[in-house]
């Protein structure tokens, strides 16, 4: 067990270590949380402009985007929204249990969230992306003729290509974040179980939770913008 270098006291087994650069445990925990938010601000600045670009083109090509967006199944989108909301609640519960030091329940909740994340990715891959690849809707050269062959001349295929470019870019980046989140859940569960010297308080769970809620946040905007586009 590591000693309190700055005041010469050994910490008790369930007392989080205060590192010498911090006044007290509150300041240390605040620093971690603020650091995580600084990272999340980066993520906001990363996803925000993508949504702005989408919004701009949805504005400029409203009618075409309306027709094209109806090639997406809003029921699958709603199902995935539900799954992410459940996982977000589970992560919030994991933090709650960690603050009460009920580690077994923390791991159960994190496992639940990891399963939800995996289910989200599976649904996305099998029921959304795979059929679109089959129909040739991935924006590669020749998209326009494939679009006309599959959907007929229901709208402008140039603009439809723009829509699907942004659809794959934004949902793809979001899915990458979900995948990273699931891997972090598994890693965190392992650390909680095997490395009590590393996980001394609830803050690691809180930081992973903040990341996961951000992923949920992105989907909260993505869902109406892509799946529920009004005419």
């Amino acid at each position: 067990m590591a000693a309190h270098a700055h005041d010469g006291h050994l910490r008790s087994p369930d007392m989080p270590e205060v590192y010498p650069q911090f006044e007290d445990i509150d300041q240390q925990q605040e620093t971690y949380i603020v650091g995580m938010w600084a990272f999340l601000v980066n993520e906001v600045m990363f996803f925000g402009p993508l949504f702005f670009i989408y919004g701009l083109y949805a504005w400029k090509h409203n009618a075409v985007f309306y027709v094209t967006s109806h090639h997406l199944d809003y029921k699958i989108g709603a199902l995935n929204t539900t799954i992410l909301l459940i996982s977000s609640w589970m992560v919030a519960m994991a933090v709650h249990y960690h603050q009460k030091n009920q580690l077994k329940k923390v791991c159960n909740m994190l496992w639940g969230a990891a399963v939800c994340g995996t289910a989200f990715l599976a649904i996305k891959l099998i029921f959304e992306w795979a059929p679109k690849f089959d129909h040739g809707l991935f924006p590669t050269p020749g998209f326009q003729s494939r679009y006309l062959a599959y959907y007929g001349a229901d709208t402008n295929p140039d603009v439809a290509r723009l829509f699907f470019s942004m659809y794959f870019a934004i949902t793809g980046l979001h899915a990458l974040h979900v995948l990273i989140g699931v891997l972090i859940f598994v890693w965190l569960i392992r650390l909680i179980k095997k490395r009590p010297d590393v996980i001394t308080d609830y803050v690691p769970t809180e930081m992973v939770g903040l990341y996961w809620h951000f992923v949920d946040l992105v989907w909260i905007f993505l869902f109406p913008l892509f799946y529920l586009m009004p005419k």
Partner: peptide, 30 residues
């Protein structure tokens, strides 16, 4: 999600500054 699940409502002023600051900043960009 931000207020309750992420707990910003119950957090310190410095955390609030960072959390809300990001959204204000991205709005300016928009």
């Amino acid at each position: 999600v931000v207020q309750i699940f992420m707990g910003v409502k119950y957090s310190t002023k410095l955390t609030k500054l960072y959390a809300y600051g990001g959204f204000v900043w991205v709005t300016l960009l928009g």
